[in-house]
Amino acid sequence: MTSPASSSEVKYLIESSEGNTFDVSGAALRQSNTFNAMFLNIGADGPIPFTDYNEATLKKVFEYCEHSVNEENYSGPKHQDDLSKWDLNFFNEMDQKMFIDVINASNFLDIERLTSYCCERIARMLRGKNTQEMIKVITLPTAEELEAKQKVEEKKAAAAKKVAEKAAETAEKTETLEELPVQQLVQTTRNKLTRKYLSFSNE
């Protein structure tokens, strides 16, 4: 739902995974390319559901967006040393879990500036380190984790195969339909349509 105010002060309601809603300004939200692609032109009727992310994460992400509303358009990554005091505080006050959640949300919302700053910050963890030192700061998946991942992927592949088989079966049925005389085909199709669509066709 949007608040009826001047266009620069338009507020949008955001819904988090907990079902909670909160306001974000249109200017802040427009920094999200995902929002721009999905809602900017058509508008949002009711709260915008970003329900894969919790309230704290979304508030943190939009806190950043609200702060950078008046900054010039994003023109490429900034070196961490060039970040403002506010930016540095923003990053420093997050614990690791929140930081990862913010990257994930920022990546989904496609907020270029925030995502790049987060990535540059991660890259700094690896700066000047060799393979052995890198292993000390990042977690590499264990053999068990890799095995579990492979199993999940196999399951996914099996599921995808099932879907493909079902689709092939449906396509076969459709082909059978197409072989029916036109009158019969129309009747069969009509029976499959919902009442709403039938009434639409009668109009």
Partner: peptide, 14 residues
């Protein structure tokens, strides 16, 4: 830091 659990795009960005 569980770097490899990040989505691919931010990971490549890093």
């Amino acid at each position: 830091f569980p770097l490899l659990r990040l989505p691919t795009l931010p990971l490549l960005n890093c």
